[in-house]
Every structure is written in C-alpha cells, then in structure tokens.
Simulated assay, not measured.
Amino acid sequence: MKTRVISALILAPILIVLVAMGGLPLKISIMILGMVGMREFYQAFSKGNNGLHTISYLFALFYGVFMEQVINGDNYFNIFVAVFLVVLLVYTVICHDKTNAVEGMSGFFGFFYVFFLLSHIYLIREFMYGKYLVWLVFSTAFGTDTGAYFVGIKFGKHKLIPSLSPKKTVEGAIGGIVTATILALIYGTLIDGFFVFDGVDVVLLCGLTGFFGSFLAQIGDLAASAMKRMAGIKDFGKLIPGHGGVLDRFDSVILTAPALYYIMLFLIEVAPL
C-alpha cells in the first residue's frame, strides 16, 4: 500500500501538468502511454510475434500523429481501419507458419482497446471547452474506484462477479456510480458558475458523464480482469510500482474517456478540434 501511495503522489502531479498543458506535450504522452499499453497487451496475448507487433505499432504511430485528421476527416477513419485490417490479414496469410488468426485479431484489438481509446483523452482536451471538461475523465474513473471501495467495505454483501473479481460487490458498484455522479454534478455546477459555456447544459453533460462513465469504468476494470484471467497473469506490467502496468492503472479510464468525448459530441453544438 505504501508503494502504491508513493507512486500515486509522484505520478499525479505529472498527469495534472500534462493534461493542463494539452497540445503536443499531452499528445506525445498519450502516444507513449498507448504504445506501452499495447506492448503490455501483446506480451499477454501474442508474445514473440514481432512482425505482428511491428505492423500494429506503425499503424498506431500513424494514427497518433494524424489522429485529429483521421477522426474528423470524411471517411478517413474508415479507410484507416480497412487498411489496417487488410494488412494484418495479409501478414497472417503470408506468415501463417509464424502466426495465426487469433494473434492477428489480437493485433487489431490491441490497438483499438489501448491506443485508440486512450487517445480520447487528447481529443477531449483539444475539443471546445475540453480544458475544463477533460478532468471529468479522471474524477469519474477515480471517484468510481473510491466510492466502490468504501461503500463495498461498509455495506457490501452481494458479490458482483466473483469469478472475475472476488472482492467487488453489487453495493460497491452502486456506490461507485453514485459517488462519481455526485462528484461530476458538483464539478459541473462549480465550473458553470465560473465560466461561460455557450449553448451547453454543462451540468447535464457532467451528470451524464458521471453516471455512464462510472458504469463503463467498472466494465473496463472487469474486462481487464477477464483478460488477465484468460492470459493467466496477475498484472499486465510492472511499470508503475504498486499499480502494475499502464493497462492496470488506466483500465477504467480507457472506457470513461470515450464516454465523455461522445457525450460532448452529442451535447456541444460545435465541430470538434
């Protein structure tokens, strides 16, 4: 526990500074985190398949450099996905003696599960009002963890999904959602009083993010547990002492960030980026 707390105290200020800065520093940081997370994923599911990994890293690098254009360009993302998939299929066929279809699918999924979903942190930050709203990603994810932990300890009686996470309870899950939603509503009320959000019901936006983001944060946590159980590992990595790897620390953020981004797209009547 001591190591876990020390790591958090060191990393939290770095994270805050990078997110506050936005722009290129945040983009590069997200790309590095994404690459490290992809490596952790591939080490779990397709260890030793360097050719497959290289292809996936190259496509991730391309997406990272041009993510704004890929996401917002007409059909660019569809083209990117199609080319990525075709290249992986070609590799799987040509190098069938070194790989298989399952590993090919892991290459495709690894990019989208890790790099693509994490990239939404940067996309949110560069979105209109993103410098105020991006903090919802972290408050929702970590608020969910905190609420679920304390409510689970105090009131937890019914196991949620014991085969994946023996300690998680239904009461804890509900407590996590309630805590995250309350924090989001408080944050929305505060920033709505200090800043102008033209044409945006920021309290509604924050409330929706807190509720749905918290639900997805817990799905992300459980999904990571299911993957680790399947791979027969305790943690995806050892990069962060006391926390594990990138995927162990950001498993809930991975799904919370897209939730906020697409809620913003729906509620903010301004073209992103």
Rank of each mutant, 00 (worst) to 15 (best):
L33W: 03
G37S: 04
G23L: 13
L255E: 10
G232H: 03
C206K: 01
L26Y: 04
T3Y: 10
L265I: 14
F41P: 02
V65T: 09
I16K: 00
K228N: 08
L164A: 09
S139I: 15
M67W: 01
L88I: 15
T54C: 12
S139F: 11
W135F: 15
V81F: 13
L89H: 05
S225T: 08
I124P: 04
P258I: 08
Q43T: 09
N100P: 06
V86L: 15
G193T: 02
V102E: 08
G104Y: 13
L118N: 07
V203A: 01
Y187T: 05
I268H: 06
C206L: 07
I177L: 13
G22I: 06
A12I: 13
Y132Q: 10
F194M: 11
H96N: 13
Y129Q: 04
D201G: 06
C95Y: 15
G220Y: 03
K154G: 02
E40H: 04
M67P: 04
V114M: 07
A101Y: 05
D145A: 12
I186Q: 01
G130Q: 05
F212R: 02
G48A: 09
F212A: 14
V202F: 12
G245V: 03
L267F: 07
L9P: 05
L61S: 13
K27M: 14
A44S: 13
L239S: 07
